[in-house]
Amino acid sequence: MCSIGFVRSLGFALLPLAVCCIVANVLLFFPGGEIQYVQQERLSRLVWFMMGIGGGGALMFLPAGVFISLGKCTGRCWNESFMMCGLVMAALVGLAGSGYCFVISVMAMLEGPQCNNAQGWSYPFANQGGRYLFEQETWSKCFHPISIVEWNVTLLSILLGLSGLEFIICFLQVINGLVTAVCRPCCYKQDYTLNA
C-alpha cells in the first residue's frame, strides 16, 4: 500500500492535538487557576459536556493508534481491503469526536460563561448570538471569576482550532481510504495486463 507513510504521519499529527484538547478542556474547569468554582458548581453548563476531554481528546487516540500501528502490506487483496476499511472506520470515529468537540465549543462560545454579575450568578451573554465576542467593553459585566470571559474565549478558541485540525486530518484519511479503495483494483488490473 503506497500510503502507509502518509497514514502514519496523520496518526502522529493527531496525538499532540488530542493531548492539547484534553489540557484546554481541563483548564476550563479551573478559571484563573482556582478550584472553588468547580466545587461550587459555578462553571458554564457546556463545560461539563467534556468536549475536549472526550471528543477531541480520548476519542482521538483510537484513530491515532490505528493510523500509527498500520503494518506492512502483505500484498493480498482481502488484507488490504480489510485494512483500508479499518482505517476509514477509525477516521470516521475521529470525525465524530472532533465534530462533537467543535460543535459544543461553538455552542459554549455563543452562550458565554456563567459568572457573578449585577443579577447574581447567571449567563449575561446568553441569547445574544455571540455579539459579546465583538464588544469587549461588556466583558467587565462579570465580576467573578476574574477575567472569566477572556479565559473561556481563549480556551474555547483553542478547542475550536484543534478540533478543526483533527477533523481535517480524519477527513483526509477518509478521502485517502476511498481513493485507495477505488484505485487499487485499477493498479491490479494494470499489473495483470503487464504480466500477461
Rank of each mutant, 00 (worst) to 15 (best):
N79Y: 14
G54W: 14
F61V: 10
L43K: 02
V88Y: 05
C21A: 08
G97A: 05
G57C: 04
A18L: 08
M84V: 10
A64P: 01
Q36C: 07
G32R: 00
A24K: 09
F67L: 06
V47T: 12
I22V: 10
Y37P: 02
A96L: 11
W48V: 08
L43F: 06
Y37C: 04
Q39R: 10
P31E: 03
A91V: 04
V19W: 01
G11A: 05
L15A: 08
W78M: 14
Y100M: 07
C73F: 13
L28P: 00
G57I: 01
P63H: 00
P16N: 04
W48A: 10
Q36L: 08
S81Q: 12
I53N: 00
L59R: 00
C85K: 15
G86E: 12
R76G: 08
L87N: 07
C21M: 09
C101F: 03
Q39I: 12
L92V: 15
N79D: 15
L46N: 07
C73W: 13
V19M: 04
M89P: 04
M83Q: 13
V47F: 08
C85F: 15
L10K: 12
L92Q: 13
C101Q: 06
M51C: 13
R45P: 14
A13G: 04
R76T: 11
P63T: 00
C20N: 11
C21F: 01
L92Y: 10
G65W: 12
V26L: 13
G71L: 05
I35D: 14
Q40F: 11
G52V: 06
A64F: 02
G94N: 02
G33N: 08
A91M: 06
M84F: 09
R42F: 07
V88W: 03
S98L: 02
G75T: 00
G71M: 07
M84L: 14
C73T: 07
C77N: 15
V88M: 10
A64N: 01
S44E: 14
C21T: 04
A91N: 04
F49R: 09
G71P: 00
M83N: 11
G75D: 03
E80W: 09
E34G: 12
E80R: 11
F30M: 06
M84Y: 10
F82H: 14
G97I: 02
L15D: 04
L87R: 08
L15E: 06
S81Y: 11
G32L: 01
L46V: 05
V23I: 12
M50D: 05
S44T: 15
G99N: 04
G99V: 01
C77T: 15
A18K: 07
I53F: 03
L70M: 12
G99S: 02
A58P: 10
Q39Y: 08
M50Y: 13
W78S: 14
G97N: 03
L10S: 10
A13L: 05
L46G: 00
V38M: 09
G32K: 00
F49Q: 10
A91T: 03
A91F: 00
G71K: 06
L62A: 07
